[in-house]
């Protein structure tokens, strides 16, 4: 493989508690800690491992998002990615439009493999990789928990509802990552310094002539229904009599 493309999204940190705006227009992330989407971090790690194993030559990361998403790209560069691209916009870009932009990038960059996260932990859509594969006409292997490159095919083990499934794909192909694929490395300080010197280009969606207008209108964003407060019980037998009374056991 010559090149692996890894799309990474900046999201609200997984340890932060999302605040629903009182006017129901969305989630207020002002001043909150933003991070690389955990699944994307795993995607970067996997691309780097393929490169370090000699299976690939270059790892390019790309993000679509606000100027601040440069931080996310710098983190991927500090992990070891070779160069980065930001397609800058302050709009919320839906997976379909993200996939179209990534398709345009893939046509220019001609990667042998695109590795994405299986899902962004903010919108929880779980769509972009599959959409990109469709637009490119490439095979896909989603929810990967193991990836191996051998005899010009990619062997991917996937986490499915019933267990594990293994597919083999010819290149070029699209893979999306599940959590157990790998454990991403920590970035050492010298690498963070080095990452500042790596190439990070910035462009805008219009450069690709792609309409990123929303297809889904957000009518409202609300907090989920709360649960009513529970009780503490002291012993197992007390618990069992309560559950019996409720007809549960």
């Amino acid at each position: 493989m010559k090149k692996i493309l890894v799309p990474v999204k900046m999201v609200l940190d997984s340890n932060a508690r999302p605040r629903v705006r009182t006017d129901e227009t969305g989630i207020d992330v002002a001043g909150m800690r933003m991070s690389i989407n955990p699944f994307c971090e795993i995607a970067v790690e996997e691309a780097l491992r393929l490169k370090e194993a000699g299976a690939a030559e270059e790892v390019v990361v790309v993000s679509i998002g606000p100027a601040k998403a440069q931080d996310t790209l710098r983190q991927a560069l500090a992990m070891g990615a070779d160069r980065a691209m930001l397609i800058q916009t302050d709009e919320t870009v839906e997976p379909l439009a993200v996939a179209k932009l990534l398709c345009a990038v893939a046509r220019e960059e001609v990667p042998d493999l695109v590795i994405l996260g299986k899902q962004a932990i903010d919108d929880d859509c779980n769509q972009t990789g599959q959409m990109l594969a469709a637009l490119l006409g490439w095979p896909q292997a989603t929810f990967a928990s193991a990836v191996r490159f051998a005899e010009n095919r990619l062997l991917v083990t996937r986490e499915i509802d019933a267990g594990l499934q293994t597919l083999s794909l010819p290149l070029p192909a699209v893979v999306t990552t599940d959590l157990r694929l790998n454990e991403p490395r920590h970035c050492a300080l010298p690498n963070i310094m080095k990452a500042r010197k790596k190439s990070l280009t910035v462009c805008v969606p219009a450069d690709y002539g792609i309409d990123i207008g929303r297809r889904l209108k957000i009518v409202a964003v609300r907090p989920p229904a709360g649960r009513k407060p529970g009780i503490r019980v002291a012993t197992a037998s007390e618990l069992v009599s309560d559950l019996r009374a409720a007809g549960l056991v």
């Binding site: 469709a134 989603t142 996937r158």
Partner: peptide, 23 residues
């Protein structure tokens, strides 16, 4: 929204130029 549904439906959505609503 099983592993199979999540795998295939966005592929169809993209080819129909439709934004899927997940879950």
């Amino acid at each position: 929204a099983t592993s199979g549904g999540k795998d295939v439906l966005p592929r169809v959505a993209a080819l129909l130029d439709v934004m899927q609503i997940s879950d």
